[in-house]
């Protein structure tokens, strides 16, 4: 009996070692991307992903799969409407199609786009207004053992109308491997350096660099619940040693007329300290300002203050207010 136990232990060790070697040698190469530093608003831009396959198939045979590729861009680009993807490889060139929302990624039970966001996140971006969009080749391709190839995926899309600075995400995978959390061989992803959209509308939306004041969600209306954040760690301000931070905020209508102003330092205007010199407050603007049904708040102007209201910090650590415009597109 003892001998049998010993024998089976050796077998399991050998199997484990074989699997480890097999898995370690198999799959996709690391991904590298070519992303321009900047583009003009609404310009159509090409992003290039270089990758490769290294099939090490147990016991010979073949491995058949479709190529999966995704990119992560700001939601404001509406890239789903105009993104195209294609690839070139020694096994042939082809176009790719967006995976329908109705098709669920089997491991997460989410759509492939949501699953990619859950798996890869938003990288170095600090503001979560990004979406992953995942495409798949229309054809499947078969690999035999040691048939190593390099291939290139090109993604083309319009960059949207707003000025912004963001890091973009890229993913290459295999359709039959799905997005298993433990897998590191069949899903390769990376994030680009800063990519800037210039000559567009509005102030620069900076996704990468810490901001003194931010609002989440990036796109909202006055009936949404919004979160205003003050990040005192970004730079030295007059509020550096204050024990509590308060919100001083004005609601304006479409014509710029003042609807209401709240500048009292109360429990309702006090920000919550979330650590790391960061403070936040969640408000439902329609309820916060108690506006009538037919009144619509078009934008907010706001400052962060101390408990007396005398020390105040505005946009870029100046006397100018932070501004937030309610809009969906």
């Amino acid at each position: 009996m003892k001998k049998k136990i010993h024998y089976s232990t050796y077998v399991y060790w050998a199997m484990g070692l074989f699997l480890a070697i097999f898995l370690a040698q198999c799959g996709l190469k690391a991904i590298s991307v070519v992303v321009p530093k900047s583009a003009k608003a609404n310009q159509r831009v090409t992003f290039t992903m270089h990758c490769g396959a290294e099939p090490r198939i147990q016991g010979g045979g073949s491995y058949s799969t479709q190529l999966v590729a995704g990119i992560m861009v700001p939601k404001g680009w509406n890239a789903r409407k105009n993104l195209t993807m294609s690839f070139t490889s020694p096994k042939g060139n082809g176009t790719m199609r967006i995976i329908p929302d109705s098709e669920l990624e089997p491991v997460s039970g989410l759509s492939w786009h949501q699953a990619a966001k859950k798996m890869f996140g938003i990288g170095p971006n600090l503001v979560d207004d990004m979406e992953w969009i995942v495409f798949r080749s229309t054809q499947a391709y078969s690999f035999v053992n040691n048939e190593d190839i390099d291939f290139t995926v090109k993604a083309e899309c319009n960059v949207g109308a707003e000025n912004m600075l963001a890091s973009l995400g890229f993913y290459i995978g295999s359709s039959i491997e799905n997005l298993r959390p433990e897998d590191t061989d069949y899903k390769k992803f990376t994030f680009s350096n800063a990519f800037e959209v210039t000559d567009g509308e509005g102030d620069l939306i900076d996704f990468i660099n810490p901001q003194l004041g931010t609002v989440q969600p990036v796109k909202s209306l006055d009936n949404d619940i919004i979160t205003l954040t003050f990040d005192g760690g970004v730079t030295n301000t007059v509020l550096d040693h204050e024990p509590a931070i308060y919100l001083h905020v004005r609601a304006m209508d479409e014509s710029g007329k003042l609807i209401a102003e709240i500048r009292k330092q109360t429990a309702d205007t006090k920000l919550t300290d979330v650590g790391g010199k960061k403070y936040l407050i969640d408000i439902w603007p329609r309820g916060f300002f108690k506006v009538d049904k037919d009144v619509h708040i078009a934008r907010l102007e706001y400052f962060y203050t101390d408990i007396t209201g005398t020390k105040s910090v505005g946009y870029g650590n100046t006397d100018e207010p932070f501004k937030y415009t309610f809009r969906c597109e």
Binding site: K75, P217, K219, S220, L221, D222, N223, D224, I225, F326, C328
Partner: peptide
Amino acid sequence: SLGCSSNTY
């Protein structure tokens, strides 16, 4: 969605 359709509650 309370405001923008992109925000789900």
